[in-house]
């Protein structure tokens, strides 16, 4: 029998370093976080789509999304890739599929949600701290909803001729948006954000990371492979912010056209189209920048 006892020492030549975990994530780990975030947010949104909506009076008392699902991922894993995967998952699983797809506005939705989640995820330093989790959950909803409220308002301006001269319209839209905002923070942010997240994040901490071949995050320590704090990243984040606001801004611009030259709106049709294309182009450039960024970081290793 060729049974041999295993020698105490390793016999082979050590390749690379004997280091433990790298500070940076490998390309496939990023892909894994992205795909996981996409899949889970997609499921969460499909479930919400199926839940019947309850309305009290004119206000929709429904859940916009399960904040705790993407929040858990940004809190425990790399916030950048988790934050990117969640809105993409929502668009792909629900919006495209359920016919909720609003075209260019989806880009704006992705940017808003990404920013909201990324900021919230970066806020969480200790995944076991209830206060940090609660703050982060509310932050997601506040950032996302504030941005989308602005866009919603401007859509009315662009969509309705001389919107501000229509009796009762601006007030009613403002009040509805205001109530909607408050209800969203309460239902989406607290009921389906803070409360489940306070339970789920600590419950999964230390359990989900090994399944992905990563080391659990140690409280206080910056997360493994966190977004590079370089000028490039700050630049991209800024560009995203501007692009998101640009969608609102460009629609406000149309109001000006509508007010001053209502008879010539068709003349400005081509110009307006150009604005739309410009917005898409900016969004596209941001997308390209993101991909470039990811390629750069993955080739760095």
């Amino acid at each position: 029998m060729s049974q041999t006892t295993v020698p105490e020492e390793r016999a082979g030549r050590l390749r690379g370093t004997a280091a433990g975990i790298r500070r940076d994530l490998s390309g496939s780990q990023k892909l894994m976080i992205f795909v996981l975030s996409m899949a889970l947010s997609g499921v969460a949104n499909t479930v919400i789509e199926v839940i019947p909506e309850v309305s009290i009076g004119p206000v929709d008392v429904s859940v916009s999304y399960f904040v705790f699902v993407p929040l858990t991922l940004v809190a425990l894993l790399n916030p950048f890739w988790a934050a990117l995967g969640a809105p993409v998952g929502e668009v792909i699983f629900v919006d495209l599929l359920m016919g909720d797809f609003s075209g260019l506005a989806e880009v704006e939705g992705i940017i808003q949600m990404f920013l909201a989640l990324f900021i919230a995820g970066s806020m969480i330093r200790n995944p076991r701290s209830k206060i940090q989790i609660a703050l982060a959950a509310v932050t997601v909803v506040v950032i996302d909803k504030a941005l989308s409220a602005i866009v919603d308002l401007s859509k009315v301006w662009i969509g309705v001729e001389d919107a501000e001269y229509v009796e009762g319209l601006p007030e009613s839209i403002l009040v509805l948006e205001g109530i909607g905002f408050a209800v969203d923070i309460l239902i989406t942010g607290v009921l389906f954000g803070v409360i489940p997240a306070i339970w789920l994040i600590p419950a999964l901490h230390g359990r989900i990371e090994p399944l992905l071949g990563m080391r659990p995050r140690v409280p206080g320590e910056p997360i493994q492979g966190s977004a590079p704090r370089t000028g490039l990243f700050v630049g991209v984040a800024l560009a995203l912010g501007i692009a998101s606001f640009f969608f609102a801004f460009l629609e406000a611009w149309d109001v000006a056209i509508g007010v001053f030259e209502p008879d010539f709106i068709d003349t400005y049709g081509s110009g307006f189209l150009w604005v739309g294309i410009g917005a898409a182009a900016i969004a596209f450039l941001v997308g390209v920048a993101l991909v470039k960024l990811s390629r750069n970081t993955s080739t760095e290793d």
């Binding site: 309305s55 859509k155 969509g159 229509v166 009796e167 009762g168 009613s172 839209i173």
Partner: peptide, 27 residues
């Protein structure tokens, strides 16, 4: 329905309704 109801509360009339029909149809 909700948007119209709210506009009505704030004193809107058939013009408001038309405006809302317009935006709703566009969306």
């Amino acid at each position: 329905g909700y948007a119209f109801g709210a506009a009505w509360v704030f004193g809107g009339d058939h013009e408001t309704a038309l405006a809302l029909v317009e935006i709703t149809l566009k969306l």
